[in-house]
Amino acid sequence: MSTTPWRGTLLFAGSLATIAVAAVTRFAGATEPPQAGSASVVGTSGTSSGTSGTTSGTTAAPGASATNTQSGAAPAAAAPVVIVGNTVQTRYGPVQVSVTFTGKTITAVQALQVPGGHQESVMINNYAAPILAQEAVAANSAKIDTVSGATFTSQAYKTSLQSAIDLLG
């Protein structure tokens, strides 16, 4: 009555079969997401469409998929304009920024969404978000350095920021 040889391996094969069946049925019907040019982001979990309510699925032009909530009737030369960037999914949750432009200059960046499901993320992102905002204002572009320890958030932040800049036109 010694251990049945290969039973463990057979059980593993069973587990693999379960995983395969679960994956195939779960992923069935998933199509290539309509990825809008700049919204395809290194480090996202590929859920940039379909799950996020704030991302418009009806894309007209690359980079124009952001919800545009311009304050003010028209972008006047001196009046500050707030543009909300794309929601970008990371492995730990969505990232979305709103950018305040005065003319073509970035004067402020506000993080609307950062991954915050648990303490670690909250700590990392509370630390990373202000640094990223300062960098964006200083660089006046999305060409900013990644904050170490928050790589995914940084990359998604840059992408959301870039989408807002693109929207300003």
Binding site: A23, R26, A30, T31, E32, P33, S45, G46, G50, T51
Partner: peptide, 14 residues
């Protein structure tokens, strides 16, 4: 999400 299966990378992660 079902869309996790849309790219090989995210599918493999899931």
């Amino acid at each position: 999400p079902a869309s996790a299966g849309s790219t090989p990378g995210t599918g493999l992660l899931a």
